[in-house]
């Protein structure tokens, strides 16, 4: 025996701390920033719409709020390294932007006011459409 037994042995099981290469660091931190920004943008927009004129376009405003919620969940999931939650939220986000984007073009009357996902996020440089794809790619890459 070489040691006194109190020192932890460096074994094959020792892995680098997860926090060092989690999904919320490196490029992932940039994603956190963008998702945080969209959570702020979509959340404020939904807040203003629902507080001041909900009756005008209940469907569009409810979807605005839903989009904001998805962005908040994603920001938190990335920061906390919750992979499964992030995957699920990214799936919902991608489905949402495609469905709402299409619906807003097919039936513009149902969307008299903009949401983040209207026309695939045209009002936001189509970033809402690109973001879930980037996010899914990032999660697949960072294992």
């Amino acid at each position: 025996m070489s040691g006194d037994g109190t020192e932890p042995r460096a074994s094959r099981d020792d892995r680098p701390p997860v926090s060092g290469d989690g999904i919320g660091t490196g490029p992932g931190r940039a994603l956190v920033a963008v998702y945080g920004l969209f959570a702020l943008a979509a959340g404020s927009r939904a807040g203003v719409q629902i507080a001041t004129r909900f009756g005008e376009a209940p469907l569009a405003y409810t979807l605005s709020a839903f989009a904001a919620l998805v962005y908040v969940v994603l920001t938190v999931a990335l920061v906390r390294g919750a992979r499964r939650l992030a995957f699920a939220a990214l799936g919902v986000e991608l489905a949402g932007v495609l469905l709402i984007g299409t619906a807003s073009l097919v039936d513009p009357a149902a969307f008299p006011d903009e949401t983040v996902w209207s026309a695939y996020g045209r009002g936001y440089l189509f970033i809402p459409l690109v973001l879930p794809v980037v996010g899914l790619y990032w999660l697949r890459r960072r294992r």
Binding site: G26, P27, R29, A30, A33, V34
Partner: peptide, 13 residues
């Protein structure tokens, strides 16, 4: 918090 090029990328955003 992000001491890499991605920290600068965040500032660009």
């Amino acid at each position: 918090a992000e001491r890499s090029r991605w920290g600068s990328a965040i500032l660009a955003v």
